[in-house]
């Protein structure tokens, strides 16, 4: 049976449709549900194996990105979300969704302290909202979502993606292999905080982390925005190479691999 994925929407979340598309395309069954419908009927959550916090601008980033929606969840659904997080289920938070996860304390949740915020996604050190493509390298974490991906190119679009955590948390993140993806140069060598490879000044070039179990995944880049070949930056040149070689053009985008890992987990 296909795993069911709940895609959250409302209050300025704006990437729910393409996120749902990616789950549907890769063997899960997605359903978009408004946060207020869950508040009204929290038992809805039990029907799902996957929970996705899509990208967007919840509450316009007012009072800090992801903060206001996290507050709304804490004030209404804290217990239910914590339960979901600690069951054999999967959670993904993309961009604004990652900011929400961090504010909710669902990642990194060092020492299994689910519900306690331990890190922050701060203003990009460029101080600007930045929309561009980045190269990412898997750090061999135990994250379910990044299995069998070594390098991947994805778009980013955020103003607050500069990952920060106090030294003791950073150390734990490293020790527990909870850093899943890092910004790197095209050849896979470290970005070392250097623009444009690390686009926001993130500590240790961190682009994504997971919880200790590897089931909860938060990332700044947008895999759902690379759902087909022609989404990719520079696809026109790749097309030209393939055509001159007489080869077929691919259809899917690499971003789908992340969503495919979710449905595989439940097989």
């Amino acid at each position: 049976m296909k795993p069911k994925a709940l895609i959250l929407t409302g209050y300025g979340i704006n990437s729910e449709e393409e996120t749902a598309y990616c789950f549907d395309r890769t063997g899960s069954e997605a359903q978009i549900i408004h946060i207020n419908d869950i508040i009204e009927n929290p038992s809805l959550l039990q029907k799902f194996q996957i929970l996705a916090f899509p990208g967007g601008f919840s509450y316009g980033d007012d009072t800090g990105s992801g903060n206001a929606l996290a507050n709304k969840i804490k004030n209404n659904l804290k217990k239910e979300f914590l339960k979901f997080a600690t069951e054999e289920k999967l959670i993904i938070g993309i961009c604004n969704g990652f900011q929400i996860l961090v504010n909710l304390g669902l990642a990194p949740a060092i020492n299994n302290e689910y519900g306690t915020p331990q890190a922050a996604l701060m203003h990009n050190n460029t101080t600007r909202f930045t929309c561009t493509w980045v190269h990412l390298k898997n750090q061999n974490s135990n994250c379910v979502w990044t299995r069998n991906i070594e390098m991947i190119q994805l778009p980013i679009a955020h103003g607050e993606g500069n990952f920060y955590a106090p030294p003791e948390i950073m150390e734990e993140l490293n020790t527990n292999n909870q850093i899943t993806l890092k910004y790197v140069k095209e050849d896979g060598t470290p970005a070392n905080g250097q623009l444009p490879f690390n686009p926001n000044g993130s500590a240790q070039d961190i682009a994504a982390i997971c919880d200790p179990s590897g089931r909860i995944f938060g990332l700044m880049p947008h895999p759902e925005r690379f759902n087909c070949f022609t989404n990719k930056e520079g696809w026109e040149k790749e097309k030209e190479i393939l055509i001159r070689q007489g080869k077929e053009l691919p259809k899917d985008g690499d971003g789908l691999k992340i969503f495919a890992n979710a449905s595989k987990y439940f097989q």
């Binding site: 679009a157 925005r225 989404n231």
Partner: peptide, 18 residues
Amino acid sequence: KQYDHNVQGITGTKPLQG
């Protein structure tokens, strides 16, 4: 670069090229 052109996952031929 500061205007998101990738949101909605529907970008094709982009505002900055090559």
